[in-house]
Simulated scan of single mutants.
Amino acid sequence: MDNTLRIEQIQHFVPFDELSTSAIEELMPHFRYHQLDSHKILFKRGVEDDECHFLINGELDLADEQFNITKIRGEEAENFLALDSSHPVHRCAAITQSHCSFFSIKRHYLELITTWTELRQSYEQQDEEADWLEALLTSNLFNRIPPANIQQLLMRFKERSVSLGEVIIQQGDEGNECYVIKSGKAVISRTSHGVPETLAAITTGTLFGEDALTSALPRNASVTMSSDGELMVLTQEDFTTLLKNPVLEYLNETQLHELIEDGDTGTVVIDVRTRQEAIAHPLPKARNIPLAHLRHELASLSPEFIYVTTGEARGEAAAYILNEAGFQTKVLRFDEQVSN
């Protein structure tokens, strides 16, 4: 009997069939290979299990609470999912009917990997092997940064190794760093009114964690690694000096009026306060898009307009997000003289 776990065996199963050989190689330390003889119990019904199990070869029975038997054979094409993994408490018992080989992985890790592979199908993904620096420097944001600042940025980034399942950013925490994925994958999630929601899957070259640095507000989402990898880390001070300040432009109320009246391009004022704040103290002729919803509303905005954001620190964070997405943006400062 073969006592080694091979990559092609893992790639037979969902969600690993969507991962490259190199990605599976990175995950290998997180798999547990094990065997059982005939008439042994892999897991019992009603017992909580922090692992998910995959049958490589052999035959076993899954018995539910009515003692209905489902036979699973390792060599059959229909065997491509984890065994009885829809719930952390097993609904069935698993009893081997021959000598069987398995690999297992922590349930939390499997959920992260599954989420990333499913979400990436709805996003335009970069090549996993793409150079992180190339991906970063070709983004809309970096087109607005002076070349001297880019050189300084590359000197200020610090490399950090991270692991599958590691929480890089925790929702609600204070932000003092931002990150670029040099290698690896991560999942962005948010809990609202006690309900968790997965927002996006990110990979090589993605900058994240900057929102809290531009707004001085707590982290608005969590970021968890869905693979091992390397991050490039930038402190808040370096981010503000080299990234935030160069890309933000300001204007006052007089300049806003002139821009609206005399500008060749249409101007849209975006109030990024909460709905309640905007209703209580409305800003005339402004479109209310709360900062927490802005990324989701980017598709409804047109690059043909200039966008002016308001909301003090939140207005700066909104302008940064819009700049990052390639829009022309300015930040409104009330009752201040702002030089051009």
Rank of each mutant, 00 (worst) to 15 (best):
M232F: 04
L141Y: 10
L301Y: 10
E78G: 02
D17E: 12
A77T: 11
L112E: 02
Y33N: 02
G175M: 04
D50T: 07
A201W: 06
S139P: 08
F31H: 07
R273Q: 08
H87R: 05
L112M: 07
L81H: 15
S189K: 10
P29E: 04
H30M: 00
N140A: 11
Q152W: 06
L154I: 15
P146T: 06
F13Y: 15
G266C: 02
T265L: 06
P15V: 02
D61Q: 11
E59S: 14
I95K: 15
L294S: 04
L207S: 09
S98I: 06
T241Y: 05
T114H: 09
G266V: 02
G74A: 01
Q35I: 00
E134K: 11
Q255P: 01
Q152D: 13
I10C: 03
R156Y: 10
P15M: 02
T115C: 05
Q255L: 00
G205Q: 10
F54E: 07
F142E: 05
T329P: 06
M232V: 08
E261T: 13
E230W: 08
N245W: 05
K158I: 10
E118W: 04
L234S: 06
R73D: 06
T117N: 07
R120C: 05
T204K: 12
K40H: 11
N57K: 11
F16C: 01
I306E: 12
E111M: 09
S139N: 13
R6Q: 15
L298F: 08
K185Q: 13
I289G: 02
M155Q: 14
A313I: 05
R91G: 13
L207N: 11
P284I: 04
S300A: 11
I24G: 03
H281Y: 11
T204M: 02
L153I: 13
M1L: 10
T274K: 12
D2K: 12
E197M: 13
S189E: 14
S161G: 07
Q152H: 14
G326V: 01
D49R: 11
Q255W: 01
D84W: 01
Q9V: 00
E8W: 09
N143K: 15
L207M: 15
L164C: 06
E237C: 05
I188W: 05
I181C: 03
F43T: 03
